[in-house]
Structures are given as structure tokens and as C-alpha cells.
Design a protein around this nucleic acid. Structure first.
Length: 256
DNA sequence: ATGGTCGCGCAGCGA
């Protein structure tokens, strides 16, 4: 089973690129983030035509998460409380696909240290950790994928010095991320790629992609049982190229 | 060059 995650930065404008990518990589499950759509605008038919069911949790202009699956899509829930939009945006959707609980998340950006947005990001991470402890089983088959807006290690940014005093690499953010690993999740990409300098996001500005100035902030975190089945993990850097790309590249894993 | 690019939606914010 191939499971992927991609921050598409507007599913409306990105739909042709997503359809093209689905044809090429043929994932069984695709988690998406920043769809920027309301639920009634979610492109159900294009996904159905491509062979996928689509579950979407959005509010419109901002945020928005989704799961597309061609191996079943059941037990869909939205937000930490299992119901309507989260207090700070549509950032969490869970479903069961092919016997695996799949959770697509879009962590708050945090904007800048010493702002309420940064404090809200840390609080959101705390709530995600609590949700896992209360509602999930570290011995089950579970994948949390998405845009975590955290680069877990210095090897996950092009130059750690450039990020001193900014978000995405601060110690409290990394502690929030580490709590997920401590609960029982494994960074599936890291298993197969211990090397640094592999990124999933590059700023649109100043030709940063072509200069290699990026961060690894999109992740697929899996429970032990899933990690044992994981035989490959890749970032599709080519999807960041060409016409109307997202600023994020897709990330995928293969399970035996 | 002291900014640089997108997306949303139509000004200016968020990333």
C-alpha cells in the first residue's frame, strides 16, 4: 500500500497537478492540506473519476484537510473533538483506509516567536499529543501525515543559522513534535533517508527552490507496526517544478 | 536589487 501526503496550497488551483500526480504515482491514499475549500466545493467528481473516494474538512479561504483513498474510506471524523471545525481552523481529519487509521493534519504556522500565533501553535501540538494519548493506540496501525510546520532536526533545514530566532526549528516546537514520537510514532522518511538536506517545502520567492533553500516540514509519522511494513519513502521533488506548482512537494511511503 | 512569490479575492493578509 502506498500512502502519500501533499500540502497542495489550494486544491482548486492545484487540481490538474494533483490529478497528474495521482496518475503517475498511483498512491492508494493521499492526504492533502491547505485545500482552501469549503466542503461543498470539494472536487468529489474528479477524484471519483480517478478512482478515489474523498473526505474533506474545510472552512473556505484558509486551511482545509482531506483524505483521498482507493482502498476504502470509513470512520471519518473531523477535528480533535470528532465533530465540526476546530477552534483554530480545519486542520485535522481522520479516516480508516485499507485497515490503517489515516490522519491528515495541517499544523499552525506560528508566524513568529513571541506572538500569539506561536503560542497557539504550541497549544495545538499539545492538543494533538493529548488526542493521541486519549483516542489512539500506539500498538495499532496508524499514520499521521501532513504539514507539521516543524523541521525536527538541524539536518532538515538548509542552514540552521538562518532559522535562529524564527519558527519551525525552535526547541518548544521540536518538543511538541518529539512528544508524538515518544508516544510511539516513527518518522518514516527518516528511516530510509538518514541523510540531511532533503526538503519538502521551498519558499516561492527568490528562486529558493532552484537554490536548494528549503525545509523538511511535511512528514509521515507511523506506528511501530506500520514502520515494520515500510519498505520505501520518497519525496517527489519533481512535483515542485513546472507550471503552477505547490510550494510543497509530495511525500510517500510504501508498505508491504 | 535592501525586494524577491504565490493564493485568495479585489485590499491586503497569510504563508
Amino acid at each position: 500500500m502506498r500512502i502519500a501526503t501533499w500540502n497542495v496550497n489550494s486544491l482548486k488551483i492545484r487540481l490538474p497537478r494533483v490529478e497528474e500526480w495521482l496518475m503517475g504515482r498511483a498512491p492508494d491514499v493521499l492526504m492533502m492540506q491547505e485545500t482552501k475549500l469549503a466542503d461543498d466545493s470539494a472536487p468529489q467528481m474528479p477524484f471519483r473519476m480517478a478512482g478515489y473516494e474523498l473526505a474533506h474538512h474545510g472552512e473556505g479561504r484558509w486551511n482545509g484537510v482531506a483524505i483521498a483513498s482507493r482502498v476504502g474510506l470509513s470512520d471519518v471524523s473531523f477535528g480533535f473533538d470528532g465533530r465540526g471545525p476546530d477552534v483554530d481552523g480545519a486542520r485535522f481529519i481522520s479516516a480508516v483506509c485499507g485497515g490503517v487509521q489515516v490522519i491528515s493534519i495541517y499544523a499552525p504556522n506560528g508566524r513568529a516567536l513571541e506572538t500569539p500565533f506561536y503560542a497557539a501553535k504550541l497549544e495545538w501540538y499539545a492538543r494533538l499529543g493529548e488526542w493521541l494519548e486519549r483516542h489512539a493506540d500506539p500498538n495499532g496501525d496508524l499514520v499521521i501525515g501532513g504539514d507539521f510546520n516543524v523541521a525536527p532536526a538541524d539536518a532538515d533545514v538548509y542552514d540552521p543559522a538562518e532559522y535562529v530566532g524564527t519558527t519551525h526549528t525552535s526547541a518548544p516546537e521540536r518538543r511538541g513534535f518529539q512528544r508524538l514520537l515518544d508516544w510511539g510514532l516513527v518518522d518514516a522518511y527518516r528511516i530510509h533517508h538518514p541523510e540531511g538536506g532533503r526538503f519538502t517545502w521551498w519558499d516561492y520567492r527568490a528562486g529558493n527552490f532552484h537554490k536548494g533553500l528549503g525545509m523538511r516540514i511535511d512528514h509521515l509519522l507511523v506506528t511501530r507496526s506500520v514502520a515494520e511494513r515500510c519498505v520505501a519513502a520518497e519525496i517527489d521533488r519533481d512535483a515542485r517544478k513546472g507550471k503552477l506548482p505547490s510550494d510543497h512537494a509530495p511525500l510517500w511511503i510504501d508498505l508491504d
